[in-house]
């Protein structure tokens, strides 16, 4: 037998399947798609290298740029609604669920998380029915408060469709920040809170003075997860408003713009290179968000801890 330590083949065997599948079907396509965004269709189904011309076209050509900026603007509004409604609501529900005085906690948790496990396709159709003026459920609901005259075809108006769909998305996904906040709140040692209570602080002061600062890392994680999820969203808009993201592109976000471009639809031929370019822009936006979180937010937290 050889005296040298044998090559650790078992380590290779353990790592190979995951690394190969992940590299072949995730990392390679992501990089290849970025590479492909620097090509344009040439004659005879070939592709020629064009450098960053596609990006220039996408951001300044009058046939493309208005769609891109519209989708980016809508996507930021979509994200803003989630940050302003979903995450504070998730925090409120988590605070109530972690309170000592709350009963039936497991039951509430199960019910409040239910929409999150359902498919976006089903959620989209359910809300399309509920908001449909034909069924009139939204009018009945407003009628409870004597506000029936405010009822609108919420998904049919350019002014309300995007905010309405953002709120439907909030309704579905609020369970995620709720559970992340809940896990963080439950992890806070009781002694800290008891000490503050003894000092005479009320529940409100205890929450904002002690519990909230302690869960700041989770606030950051929820923020970045919301960002990545929102800039990758597609299913809800596609299900309720089709690929054209109507009315008049008022609900078009980057995911639907990307799909329409690379996959094509009735009146628009598929354009894979421009599709890859839109994916490249989405990649840059998501990367910027993640890096901002990693450097700015985490570094600042570390400094506070020191």
């Amino acid at each position: 037998m050889n005296k040298r330590k044998p090559f650790p083949w078992h380590v290779v065997v353990f790592l190979a399947p995951a690394t190969i599948v992940y590299t072949a079907f995730m990392i390679f396509p992501l990089l290849d798609s970025l590479r492909f965004s620097t090509f344009a269709p040439g004659p005879d189904r070939t592709f020629t290298f064009v450098g960053l011309a596609n990006y220039q076209r996408l951001t300044s050509d009058p046939n493309w740029a208005p769609f891109l900026w519209n989708a980016i603007k809508n996507n930021f509004l979509f994200f803003a609604v989630h940050m302003l409604v979903q995450n504070p609501l998730g925090l409120l529900l988590a605070a109530l669920l972690s309170s000592q005085i709350t009963r039936f906690k497991a039951l509430f948790r199960t019910v409040l998380f239910l929409p999150t496990v359902l498919s976006v396709v089903l959620i989209g159709f359910i809300w399309r029915l509920i908001l449909s003026p034909i069924w009139g459920i939204s009018g009945d609901f407003l009628g409870l408060f004597g506000l029936e005259h405010l009822n609108r075809p919420w998904l049919g108006l350019e002014s309300t469709a995007l905010v309405t769909l953002s709120l439907v998305s909030v309704w579905q996904w609020v369970g995620i920040p709720m559970l992340l906040f809940l896990a963080a709140l439950v992890g806070i040692p009781d002694e800290l809170i008891e000490a503050a209570r003894v000092d005479g602080a009320n529940a409100w002061r205890v929450f904002w003075g002690i519990r909230f600062p302690l869960i700041l890392p989770t606030v950051g994680i929820v923020g970045v997860l919301t960002f990545v999820g929102n800039f990758n969203a597609f299913d809800l808009i596609y299900t309720t408003q089709r690929a054209t993201a109507g009315p008049n592109y008022a609900t078009d976000i980057l995911g639907t713009f990307f799909f329409r471009t690379f996959f094509g639809m009735q009146l628009q031929a598929a354009n894979p290179t421009m599709g890859a370019t839109i994916a490249g822009i989405m990649f840059l936006i998501i990367l910027a968000g993640v890096l901002l979180y990693l450097f700015a937010y985490q570094m600042r937290l570390q400094r506070i801890e020191l």
């Binding site: 990392i27 798609s33 990307f258 994916a279």
Partner: peptide, 29 residues
């Protein structure tokens, strides 16, 4: 083994970058 931490990081990149962005190439593949 050498590159352990680096490989861990490499495999974690996909947590934050959605696979959907590679769809054009996945379809071609």
């Amino acid at each position: 083994f050498r590159g352990n931490a680096l490989l861990g990081l490499y495999l974690a990149v996909g947590i934050m970058i959605p696979i959907r962005l590679g769809t054009v190439s996945i379809l071609r593949m």
